[in-house]
Design a protein around this nucleic acid. Sequence first.
DNA 1: TATTCGCATGGGCAATTACTCATATTGTAG
DNA 2: CTACAATATGAGTAATTGCCCATGCGAATA
Lengths: 315, 315
Amino acid sequence: MRQDGTRNKHDDAARAGWLYYVAGNTQDEIAAKLGVSRQTAQRLVSLAMSEKLIKVRLDHPIASCLALASELRSRFALDLVEVVPSDPGNPDTTLGVADAVAAELERLLSAPEPRIIGVGTGRTLKAAVEAMSPIDCPQHKIVSLTGNIAPDGSAAFYNVIFSIADKVSAPSFPMPMPVLASSASERELLHQQVGIERTLALAAQASVSFVGIGDLGPKAPLYMDGFITQDELKLAQKAGAVGEMLGWTFNADGVLIQGMINDRVASPPFPSRETSLVVAAAKGANKVDAIRAAVRRRLVNGLITDEETAQALLA
Amino acid sequence: MRQDGTRNKHDDAARAGWLYYVAGNTQDEIAAKLGVSRQTAQRLVSLAMSEKLIKVRLDHPIASCLALASELRSRFALDLVEVVPSDPGNPDTTLGVADAVAAELERLLSAPEPRIIGVGTGRTLKAAVEAMSPIDCPQHKIVSLTGNIAPDGSAAFYNVIFSIADKVSAPSFPMPMPVLASSASERELLHQQVGIERTLALAAQASVSFVGIGDLGPKAPLYMDGFITQDELKLAQKAGAVGEMLGWTFNADGVLIQGMINDRVASPPFPSRETSLVVAAAKGANKVDAIRAAVRRRLVNGLITDEETAQALLA
DNA sequence: TATTCGCATGGGCAATTACTCATATTGTAG
DNA sequence: CTACAATATGAGTAATTGCCCATGCGAATA
């Protein structure tokens, strides 16, 4: 019943959205055509937007974004760079970057040749996956590049492998283990488990990976989400850590911090930039140092970011 | 100068459109962010829409459209069916159908395997091509399935091969000859010309073709555009002709009319439905009979139409 | 240099859209 | 059957948007 109700509502919303955005009707006309009140029509249109039934994409290469992209590409010898416009004044939404990642993922997944695609975690990737259209692509495999167990034992919220599995019908492979092991030796044990070993092997074969970048400032996601304590964060900062990808912390030169957190990162080794494409999706002033470090040391060979961040990286 | 001015304007328009539709800013905010007046911001946003810098697409399978599509598919054994929502009250715009054709074309053209794609003529196809994004795909070949010379010797306006060539950078092959020859024998002569013979051979190899369908009522496009006289139209109607594709007139059973106009159609033979996909793009009450004839006799094996037309076809 | 033309700009106003809140309806549990 | 909760609806209102017009700026032309 509720199923049906929702479906019909979404149908109507889609129809209303189509009439509004594509056919250019006013909400009064839509109300008349659908036989509802104007307010209801308005709600349907707004629902079509908020539920992403209607997708809007910018189809024009904004010159300055293109210029920034090509400068980033040559400066850091990157293989894939995408720069989306910024929304000055709303510096914290992942909006544009997520959309761009979604588009890239859709492009990849709609290709016929089978691929193994690695995905990390984070708000940006999560938002990207949510912006994707459902797609049927059993030829590909999607493998998580991090554990999916939060410190309290629950499923880590920003792990995106499950969101992807909901959205696209491709075989997907979570890493059934914590993000951080309690010690280096526990990590070894975990990695020797048969199921995990197999998934790790699969991850190593990924030809494209998407990862988020976390900063290690006072609001480091690793700390905010409870993966590390404040003391551990302080120690890492003292050791020069500026950012983190897949849990691996690194300093301003893009060199992995020795010991400490990195001894316990349960993720597979960082994917190869010689044999595969590793795309970082990140934006924001607080991440600039981390992103710069990652691209300078070529921890990644692809970057999707926004205009402001691109400018800061090149400054 | 104008080049630069326009480019910057389009840049600004794209940016404004992005801020408006993607980031959800109001026009006041956009005005502030771009440093222009609110009115200018409004103009930029509206420009972004009218210039199609911002593309909107419906990303939700409206149940009734899906149902109609699958019923059409099974009833007429079609290989490709797409049904888009109708805009009740605006029955004459090619809007939705053209967008759907554009999406299908973009999908085809962005595939890596080389293809030969045939295109017919007509308002719907023309609108579809105009709705496409520019795309670089030198691997494909696009070949016109009709002549491109109007009766008065000028370029036939609704020939779309040139529009396509403007839009996508793929080798394209017009048919440098009239749509209708003056006689059957002139047609033979035309078809033996070296340049044309080669293009005809190419057309025969098309693996996908898109064609419009014209009705043969009192406002038959073939007549309105001056390709045939009113007497010829009347004669064709008397002979039972209900529609026309690529100039080939056919009756309600989808059987080509013997003699008359069809003796003079300069187009290559109708593409094979055994070895290739032939998609008709058409909608409208006045075309229902023609479309039904075409799908019943399998003159086409693909159809892109709208809800109302689909309902009429199934009635 | 003066004139005219084209076009961009911003004010003002009408139309349209978004939101808030009170009320009605539907479904659900006791 | 009643009460409750959740949700949907409609009226009223504030905010936003679209359009027309008067004004001004700059370029082309005489």
